[in-house]
Amino acid sequence: MQVFSTFETTGFLEIAISTLEKNGIQKENIFAVPLDNRAEDRKFFDTLHRSDGTSLIDIGMGLATALSVIGASIGFKLVWGPIYWGLIGAFVGFVIGFAIRLFIELVVKKNKRVLKGKHSEIILIIDCEETQAELIEDVLWSHFAIGVAKIK
Rank of each mutant, 00 (worst) to 15 (best):
M1P: 00
Q2P: 02
V3E: 02
S5R: 00
F7P: 01
F7E: 01
E8R: 13
T10C: 05
F12V: 07
E14L: 06
I17M: 05
I17W: 00
S18Y: 07
S18C: 02
L20V: 02
K22D: 11
K22C: 06
I25Y: 04
Q26P: 06
K27L: 04
K27F: 08
E28H: 05
N29Q: 06
I30M: 04
F31Q: 14
A32H: 03
A32L: 11
V33Y: 13
P34G: 04
L35K: 05
D36R: 12
N37Y: 07
A39F: 12
R42P: 03
R42L: 15
K43N: 11
F44V: 04
F44R: 01
T47E: 06
H49E: 14
H49F: 14
H49V: 10
R50M: 06
R50L: 06
R50T: 08
S51R: 13
T54R: 15
T54Q: 10
L56H: 10
I57Q: 10
I57M: 08
D58C: 12
G60R: 01
G60S: 10
M61K: 09
M61F: 14
G62I: 13
A64G: 01
T65F: 14
T65I: 14
A66E: 09
I70Q: 03
G71W: 01
A72R: 04
I74V: 15
G75I: 03
G75E: 06
F76G: 06
K77P: 04
L78G: 05
V79R: 14
W80E: 13
W80A: 15
W80T: 10
I83R: 07
I88C: 08
A90T: 03
A90G: 14
F91W: 13
I96H: 00
I96T: 02
I96E: 00
G97L: 00
I100H: 07
I100E: 05
R101E: 12
L102A: 03
F103K: 10
I104N: 03
E105I: 11
K110H: 03
N111M: 09
L115F: 13
L115S: 10
K116E: 15
K116I: 11
K118L: 04
K118R: 13
H119A: 07
C128T: 08
E129I: 05
E130Q: 12
E130I: 05
Q132L: 12
A133L: 08
E134F: 03
I136P: 00
I136M: 03
I136K: 01
D138M: 07
S142V: 09
G147H: 11
A149R: 12
K150W: 06
K150N: 03
K150D: 00
K152A: 14
